[in-house]
């Protein structure tokens, strides 16, 4: 009895399709890197805009956060689908975005971008104005101020934003399903695999994936906690 149990477990491990984990890992990593730079760049750009335009751009960048993911997915489908001008253009260049792996990155980026953008902006705005002003009177270039003063001083906030984006992308379901679909081994990410496992009555697989995702999220939180602890210690000089 015991023997057959462990054997069936071994069989399950051997036959278990690990591709959703790999796809999710790739998607989340690539998306987080893209969103990290995009969010920081956007935050810096918006901060230097004239007051009147700033509100409008800020609202535009925040929209994806308040829309339901399926609605976002729908718009992305309209925007990038084969019948749209953009889709036609991509097709002409020999690329088909919809239902490809890249689509998981596109949906992840759109969904996680506002999180990174907002936290980055918050982190930048939290930096003492007079520190930035004094840097300017010292003759430092805008680039030096950004790289050597603004970025390091807002690092804890930026890291928080990165972790948020990472977790959000890892859990992304709605928009991804709309534009990337559920193609096993190609666009089937972890959350999508869980949904279809449950739908197919395969509770064991679903449970395995759920456990894994929880573990990953927990790890993220611990890393984030350690990081903010360490950076606080450096700035306060202890």
């Amino acid at each position: 009895m015991k023997n057959t149990g462990s054997r069936s477990f071994r069989v399950m491990l051997m036959t278990f399709d690990l591709t959703p984990l790999w796809i999710s890992f790739k998607t989340t990593l690539v998306t987080t890197v893209i969103v990290f730079f995009l969010g920081i760049g956007a935050a810096r750009w918006v901060m230097n805009l004239p007051q009147r335009v700033r509100g409008i751009v800020d609202a535009l960048f925040t929209f994806p956060m308040i829309f339901p993911p399926t609605v976002l997915g729908f718009f992305l489908l309209l925007l990038l689908g084969n019948n749209s001008p953009l889709g036609q253009l991509l097709k002409g260049m020999g690329m088909n975005l919809i239902f490809s792996w890249s689509a998981t990155v596109v949906s992840g980026t759109v969904v996680a971008f506002p999180l990174m953008y907002r936290t980055a902006r918050g982190a930048f705005e939290q930096v003492d104005r007079s520190v930035i002003d004094v840097a300017r009177t010292l003759g430092l270039s805008k680039r030096t101020i950004f790289m050597k003063i603004l970025l390091p001083l807002s690092l804890p906030g930026l890291m928080a934003g990165t972790v948020l984006s990472f977790s959000r992308t890892l859990g992304e379901f709605g928009a991804t399903l709309m534009i990337a679909g559920n193609i096993p081994g190609k666009t089937q990410t972890l959350p999508i695999a869980i949904f279809f496992a449950v739908e197919g009555g395969d509770m064991r697989t679903a449970l395995a994936w759920v456990g894994l995702i929880m573990l990953l999220s927990l790890l993220c939180m611990v890393l984030q906690g350690l990081w903010s602890f360490r950076s606080k210690a450096t700035v306060s000089g202890r």
């Binding site: 007079s130 002003d133 004094v134 300017r136 009177t137 010292l138 003759g139 430092l140 270039s141 805008k142």
Partner: peptide, 10 residues
Amino acid sequence: PERRRVGYLF
């Protein structure tokens, strides 16, 4: 400010 050469003690 970066081109004024004016020092400012906050």
